[in-house]
């Protein structure tokens, strides 16, 4: 079975490290440390899903979403952020994010499950 390729856009090195280590067992995982890098990677590769943090250097998550929307890029994006305000959640969803997860509410295995579930749903 061919592993799906996913992108983790996360500026916090410690978080991205844990996420990558965990998810690498099920996916081919790429890392982006800022918004600029994220867009580059999306343009370069074809991802089953992008795990997007909102607070990031160079270009923040909202800016990334806006650009993708403008480009009509079909790459599905899931938001993983610690911003917990409804306003931000609504904004992200309206900009095309498929779902919104608050990181601190989740265990690391739940993150993996969510991604797996999403990608499987996408496949069907």
């Amino acid at each position: 079975m061919k592993l799906k390729r996913i992108l983790i856009a996360e500026d916090d090195p410690y978080l991205s490290k844990v996420m990558r280590n965990y998810l690498e067992e099920r996916f081919i995982v790429d890392l982006a440390e800022d918004g600029g890098e994220t867009l580059e990677m999306i343009h370069k590769n074809n991802y089953a899903v992008v795990l997007l943090d909102l607070i990031m250097p160079v270009k923040n998550g909202f800016q990334v979403l806006e650009i993708l929307q403008e480009e009509k890029n079909p790459t599905p994006v899931l938001i993983f952020s610690n911003l917990a305000e409804k306003e931000e959640m609504d904004r992200a969803i309206s900009l095309g994010a498929k779902n919104y997860y608050i990181k601190s509410d989740m265990d690391i295995d739940e993150v993996a499950k969510a991604i797996t579930k999403f990608t499987e749903g996408q496949a069907k």
């Binding site: 978080l15 844990v18 265990d107 295995d109 993150v111």
Partner: peptide, 25 residues
């Protein structure tokens, strides 16, 4: 409070996930 909770949530998330991983590994 919203800022601090956010600011605190990030390192806390890190610590939680790191420790969960450390436990797994």
């Amino acid at each position: 409070i919203s800022l601090a909770s956010h600011q605190l949530r990030t390192p806390l998330t890190g610590i939680k996930w790191i420790l969960q991983e450390a436990d797994r590994m």
